[in-house]
């Protein structure tokens, strides 16, 4: 490329402009190269006997298992219930996180009262909550949704709270000088300025929701991808275990991409 650039100085610019979008369009494919290679290595390791089939199934075996379960309809029930739990848990966690984040971001007193507590609660691992939630809320859907909400809450709370309290003093002064008033300056200056932080928080919250749904389903569920995972262990079916992990990976990535897309559209300045 370097030589063409030097020789055809005039047309190269136009050519590059024409060529770049195509290159961009296929760039994401590069990210598939390593995973694809890993699958091939995985396949070879199992077929050559490095790993025993009862420990690690062939890649194709995993696909067959998932396909089989999809064909009987069993799989969809598991996926649907897990998605539902993650959705409602995230919704609840994000809502409460927005509430606490806004209050502590706006009012120093609320921040001083609540932040130390919330900061220390956030360090409790997801699994540690499970016994307590089982005791308090039983093994129903409520307990699981609440547990997931706990996970989704903290990133939203932390990011929004700091996002609001760190809104540039310069802009606050502008709102003050032009007498926007409390309500208008929140509506026109503070909240829009905190939107990027909120979205970063939601992205983290959705990620943690997937961590917490596994904790909830591994221990107390009769349906869901997490249940499938632990069922695979009980049945000594590595193909189900690996398949469940791949399902988590797939839906986790999908939801992350969705939030990322929202982020890209909402924060376009």
């Amino acid at each position: 490329m370097a030589t063409t650039r030097e020789t055809e100085s005039g047309d190269v610019g136009a050519e590059l402009v024409g060529a770049l979008p195509d290159a961009d369009r296929f760039q994401w494919l590069l990210g598939l190269v390593v995973p694809a290679a890993l699958v091939v290595v995985w396949h070879l390791l199992v077929t050559t006997g490095v790993f025993a089939a009862h420990q690690l199934p062939q890649p194709l075996r995993v696909v067959e298992t998932l396909y089989g379960m999809a064909a009987t309809g069993e799989l969809w029930g598991h996926i649907a219930i897990t998605l539902q739990r993650v959705f409602f848990g995230t919704l609840l966690g994000v809502s409460v996180g927005v509430g606490f984040g806004t209050i502590t971001g706006l009012y120093g007193l609320a921040h001083d009262l609540l932040d130390p507590l919330l900061q220390s609660l956030k360090n409790i691992p997801s699994l540690a909550w499970v016994p307590l939630f089982l005791l308090w809320f039983g093994i129903g859907e409520g307990a699981k949704v609440l547990l997931i909400a706990v996970g989704a809450f903290f990133p939203v709370y932390l990011n929004l709270s700091t996002g609001i309290s760190n809104v540039s003093e310069d802009l606050i002064e502008v709102a003050e000088v032009y007498d926007l008033g409390r309500f208008e300056s929140l509506r026109r200056v503070v909240f829009p300025a905190a939107v990027p932080s909120l979205l970063v928080g939601i992205r983290g919250g959705v990620g943690l929701a997937w961590m917490f749904v596994v904790a909830a389903e591994l221990i107390a569920a009769s349906q869901g991808i997490g249940f499938l995972l632990s069922d695979g262990r009980v049945l000594a079916r590595p193909d189900i275990i690996v398949g469940s992990i791949l399902l988590f990976a797939f839906f986790g990535n999908l939801s992350d991409l969705a939030v990322k897309e929202v982020e890209k559209r909402a924060v376009d300045w």
Binding site: V177, L180, A193, W269
Partner: peptide, 26 residues
């Protein structure tokens, strides 16, 4: 009193029209 600061101090997410409208009387 109205003030024009040394730095522009504009709202990055708002267009020029909306930024100017911030100055409109309450």
């Amino acid at each position: 009193v109205g003030m024009v600061f040394q730095e522009p101090r504009l709202l990055a997410w708002a267009d020029v029209r909306e930024n100017v409208a911030v100055g409109l009387p309450a």
